[in-house]
């Protein structure tokens, strides 16, 4: 076992434990912080796959921005006891088990039927340049459509929050 395998096992373990922590924490703010930890764990897995750019995007957007948004939302709507804010509901547990089992079944089918032909060590010399050429060249229309969609969503959110007048 090389040192890289050891690093992978440790980071993957932390990621999984953090994800379990997101679900089981009674305090919803702890859940949000565990979510940050699992985002960081996923980023380290990207680094180990030589996808450093993707890993940094994961850190910047998910761990640095989205999670802050989640924590802000929690803090602003919080009113009752924080330690009872993320309780599990027994009512929905039966349906939950069925849905989760079905989802796991689908994922395992897709994992088993995939031939993992990817070679890990063929890191691109300059991935940023390739991504930029793709986004601004071949897929520029899809890129712009996504940008306009996000803009419309932001404007819509502001109008809903502040009123149209």
């Amino acid at each position: 076992m090389s040192i890289l395998d050891l690093v992978f096992i440790v980071t993957a373990g932390i990621t999984i434990l953090a994800s379990i922590g997101v679900v089981t924490s009674k305090n919803i703010l702890h859940s949000a912080l565990f979510l940050v930890l699992s985002f960081l764990g996923v980023a380290t897995i990207y680094f180990q796959l030589n996808a450093a750019f993707l890993g940094l995007v994961q850190i910047m957007i998910y761990a640095g921005a989205i999670s802050v948004l989640i924590i802000f939302a929690i803090m602003l709507v919080m009113s009752e006891d924080i330690n009872q804010s993320n309780l599990t509901h027994k009512k929905g547990s039966f349906i939950g088990v069925i849905v989760a089992g079905f989802f796991t079944f689908l994922v395992s089918i897709s994992i088993v039927s995939t031939k993992f032909g990817a070679v890990f060590n063929n890191a691109l010399e300059n991935p940023v340049e390739d991504i930029a050429v793709m986004l601004m060249g071949d897929f520029v229309i899809a890129f712009e459509v996504a940008a306009i969609l996000l803009l419309v969503a932001i404007v819509g959110a502001i109008i809903i929050a502040k009123g149209a007048d």
């Binding site: 940050v36 910047m60 010399e125 940023v128």
Partner: peptide, 19 residues
């Protein structure tokens, strides 16, 4: 090869610590 981007994205984590 993405040093500047590393600086910006790791720096953005400081918000979590202050929160």
């Amino acid at each position: 090869n993405i040093g500047v981007f590393y600086f910006l994205s790791v720096g953005s984590l400081a918000t979590i610590a202050i929160l």
